[in-house]
């Protein structure tokens, strides 16, 4: 009765738990992002203001947390859909691998951009 399903992995407690945690972080960081950019900042979204903000360590930290949370949360969501609806093992493994690679690429480019950013 128990068929092996390739590309689905085992366990899953960490993925489930961390998706909940990142969900909570997203509520905070998204609200913060939205409130700051549209209200607290007085709608002053200019190149100069943005570059200056992205140069401060505090905003770098917030954006790093934001980035990791968004990518992980979204990735888990897509993986969940893939695991639920893609039944052909080869297709599923390929999609799961693609999602992971895409997640890594997005995280790395994002981290590099945020960490190395300095106001010109």
């Amino acid at each position: 009765m128990k068929r092996k399903q390739y590309g689905i992995g085992s366990g899953g407690a960490f993925a489930w738990y961390f998706q909940r945690i990142t969900g909570l972080i997203l509520i905070i960081t998204l609200l913060l992002h939205y409130l700051y950019l549209h209200f607290l900042n007085g709608g002053n979204v200019t190149f100069q203001e943005v570059t200056q903000r992205l140069s401060t360590p505090l905003w770098k930290t917030i954006d790093l947390v934001f980035l990791v949370s968004v990518v992980y949360h979204a990735m888990q969501g897509i993986l969940m859909v893939v695991n639920d609806y893609v039944h052909r093992p080869a297709v599923r493994s390929t999609l799961v691998a693609t999602v992971w690679v895409l997640g890594m690429v997005l995280t790395i480019t994002g981290v590099v951009t945020i960490v190395t950013f300095t106001a010109a």
Partner: peptide, 11 residues
């Protein structure tokens, strides 16, 4: 229980 065919499949 702690398995993708267990608890974590519930949405």
């Amino acid at each position: 229980l702690d398995n993708k065919h267990g608890l974590w499949r519930c949405h």
